[in-house]
Design a protein around this nucleic acid. Sequence first.
DNA 1: GACTGACCATCTGGGCATTTTGGTCAGTTG
DNA 2: CAACTGACCAAAATGCCCAGATGGTCAGTC
Lengths: 242, 242
Amino acid sequence: MPQPVEHDSPKAARILSATRELVFDHGIRKVTIAEIARAAGVGKGTVYLYWATKEDLLLDLVGRELVEGLNQVRRALEADPGLVRPGRLTALLLHTMLVPLLNQRLQAGDEDALRLMAYHTDSRDVFARAAPEALCTAVLDVLRQHGLVRKDRALSDQAYALHALLKGFFAVQTTAVFTGPPLDRDPGLVLAETVTTLLEGDSEPGEAVLGAAAEEVLAVFDRVCADIVEHLRSLAVGAPRG
Amino acid sequence: MPQPVEHDSPKAARILSATRELVFDHGIRKVTIAEIARAAGVGKGTVYLYWATKEDLLLDLVGRELVEGLNQVRRALEADPGLVRPGRLTALLLHTMLVPLLNQRLQAGDEDALRLMAYHTDSRDVFARAAPEALCTAVLDVLRQHGLVRKDRALSDQAYALHALLKGFFAVQTTAVFTGPPLDRDPGLVLAETVTTLLEGDSEPGEAVLGAAAEEVLAVFDRVCADIVEHLRSLAVGAPRG
DNA sequence: GACTGACCATCTGGGCATTTTGGTCAGTTG
DNA sequence: CAACTGACCAAAATGCCCAGATGGTCAGTC
């Protein structure tokens, strides 16, 4: 079951939400603790009751975004197991990685966001498991076992290709080197069709298969989610860090 | 026929080659005219006999790289028309856009390279035609007409997807956000297989079809190439610029 | 015991002096 | 005479310094 990551204290929650907004406005670099405290209506010291460092606060935010995104996918998948089909699922992943602010910046190669990760190897390793490259491999493995993905190519090749495809769709939408041709259709749909052509077999899978696969994919997400939530605890104040 | 873009004067050629090396070593930003002149064994003033501006010199270099890359593909295609098959051709394009220095920087989003283009709209527009996004559309159109690409999806969708795929493979190879899984196989091969699955039909095309398609694709490249060569002339000294 | 804000050491960034750089041109060379 | 050069200049970039801002602390308040 999707667990929303609520903070125990309402003040901590307000601090998180203020941080999110300010990062959205000014970017990671420009945001200051004083500003955050003011926007949250608390004293500066209060921030340090919940996080030992400004960086820990930001990492916490990243983690929560990832959990939120994963939970979004999980809710959708629970409501409609048909979304496990590779095409649908990939489009869903694209959406969840395109929307959350910090994850988007990370994927887009934002310098400040990358630096943040660079010095916190423990957080980076945990968060990496929710990154598209990791999810692609994990999910494809499950889908292959359930016959929802063709097996005429090696898993590693398929995962590599799918990850590149996802990254490409993301890059085209976020960074335009030359002015590309405008697409009148929803890129998510085009991605879905592309993945379908690329990975799905000819036979229409039955409801039972879809349900079982969805269940297992949910379990994968669940574990990643749980690990991140677990890690978020270590970002709480007083915990030792590397 | 592939035309190598030799400069009339041997000194100009030396300047170009010195510039290429220095840009490779120090990057666009750090390279200076004095340095270039010294490396080429000429006086500073000599550089300005052939290019009105440092930027024109760099743009010239970009154009020559593009022409060189296109010619490489053309030579390969002339030697083996079987390379027009979508998978092969895409892999070839990936290679030619991954290797040339300045084009690589452009595609990777290098700030200096992008700034260079930003202020020279005329060069940018010409060079854009040799960019992957443009070539994808142009080439796919031809391949569809020759039955080498399935027509179950709209051309614009296929072009968008192919471009994203190409960009993704490029991005994965050049910029690793999180440390991705190492692939033991040649990514170019994986790309080729992926595109094949994505675009090629079931029937094996005959030699005649391949030859005819190759011919037409060559013509497309030829025209783009010619336009760039033509534009390079306008970068020669004394020409008016915007 | 949750919370605050004045306080401190450290860091950032804006302004300025200095150096470097793109570009010119009078003069040299062959 | 035509190709070429390098001293020269204005403009841009670089490095430097210090005032002001910032992350983090803690004695004290509620």
